[in-house]
Design a protein around this nucleic acid. Structure first.
Lengths: 235, 235
DNA sequence: TAACAGTAGTGAATGCCATTGACTAAGCTG
DNA sequence: CAGCTTAGTCAATGGCATTCACTACTGTTA
């Protein structure tokens, strides 16, 4: 028996060459996102990507020029997951709330991917959709021109920064747990308590914090300022 | 002249063994920060750290167990740079503004370092100082107990997230420039403009944006909500 | 002053990783 | 069916963090 050809299903055997259209940007991005979810950021290597897709480690280079470009594509995918299914509600405030919460939950569900991408400008189609949706709601709030763009940045930058930072913290915790580290609580125990009276007094309260509630507080602060200032303009 | 001892300033010669107390956490952190400033994140390697300090590449392992721990120490250093010289002003709002702007400017001045650290909990002494300073101002605003801690998180999380994200974007741009890439503007040019009317209409206005002004808008939104809610409580 | 202990600094592996360039063959074009 | 383009493969290459055994400095104790 020659070894020139082997069955695909043969266990553990060296795989035959992949067919021509087997790999696409889409499948690679999906695999990358899955790997990030399962193994965190250091887990995303060309070797693992190849194994996951049944391809040679370097096959991705036919579709992306570098690891960073794959990440950028994942970024746009994440934005797409956030707005898929979004419909503007009657109230512009509810529309923006919806968009804000969607970003939070998408990032929280894919912390490793979000960590590496939330601060990147993808220039992809989904980013455009999202920018357009936010601007649309802000126009309904009564803003136009430069000031609408200003409010757009205040809102979208808040949403991306805080949701992304939350994801980054979740990712750090997951990786530290993966490395066998025990859990750290959001607590502070100073060596010289007398120097930090407010920290000491608040120690108990630091435990009871719900991060999504804090996010909601930040979003409401921006939205209510947006509404208040728009009203002032109208008068 | 024997070569058992050589002048520190001797150019290019193989260095003699370093004296015993030459390396400290402090000097290593300072060198790491300098390297991050000059060469960006991928520039921070044990090799370069060694060269910078005139030590063997692995010498740092006597002071830090891993690269990540060095980064954590840099994080606390950055927080320290932010609050050094801070004095509470009479107005609690001005105090928080001051702290917010300090963080922004420190992060903006050290973008690579900030990028890797702003979302980390350092548990270092400077972090404690900062937490205490913020809580102190929030107490003067009229908040106590759990609600003070809630407001603390709303404020500090906003400041760290948005200042840190800004730093991350600056760092990305610097590294892309270092790689010879040309500048990218904050612009959007959709392939099918008719699908993104608001983006198209706003294209010109995207150019005129001052990021620090946006940050100020976000900080004011949170501060004014904090003030408003505190007043409601008092009544 | 002479051993000695502890440990800071060194230097040579090790193993993982992204990226490159040459090679192979699959499928289109004529 | 000959030839071309290019997706997929394979074997380097060079950089990196980390480990481990080694060396010698400094302070302690006799």
């Amino acid at each position: 028996m020659t070894t020139t050809r082997e069955s695909v299903t043969q266990a553990g055997a060296a795989s035959p060459r992949l067919h021509r259209g087997s790999l696409t940007k889409q499948t690679i991005v999906a695999a990358a996102l899955g790997i990030l979810d399962d193994h965190g950021n250091p887990g995303l290597t060309f070797a693992r990507l190849g194994k996951e897709l049944g391809a040679a480690p370097t096959a991705m280079y036919r579709h992306f020029p570098s690891r960073d470009e794959i990440l950028l594509a994942v970024a746009d995918e994440l934005i797409g997951m956030s707005i898929d299914g979004y419909e503007p509600s009657e109230s512009w405030m509810d529309s923006l709330r919806d968009l804000a919460y969607r970003a939070w939950h998408t990032f929280a569900a894919h912390p490793a991917a979000a960590t590496q991408t939330f601060f990147r400008v993808t220039r992809g189609p989904n980013e455009l959709r999202a920018v357009n949706a936010i601007l649309e709601a802000i126009h309904r709030a009564g803003w136009t021109g430069t000031e609408a763009v200003f409010q757009y940045h205040v809102f979208s930058n808040l949403v991306l920064s805080t949701s992304g930072t939350h994801a980054a913290r979740v990712a750090v915790r997951q990786e530290s747990e993966a490395n066998g580290n025990v859990e750290w609580n959001q607590e502070y125990y100073p060596a010289h308590p007398e120097d930090y009276p407010y920290v000491v007094a608040a120690r108990e309260d630091f435990r009871t914090i719900n991060l999504f509630e804090i996010y909601k507080g930040q979003v409401e602060a921006v939205l209510s300022q947006m509404a208040r200032k728009a009203q002032l303009q109208i008068q």
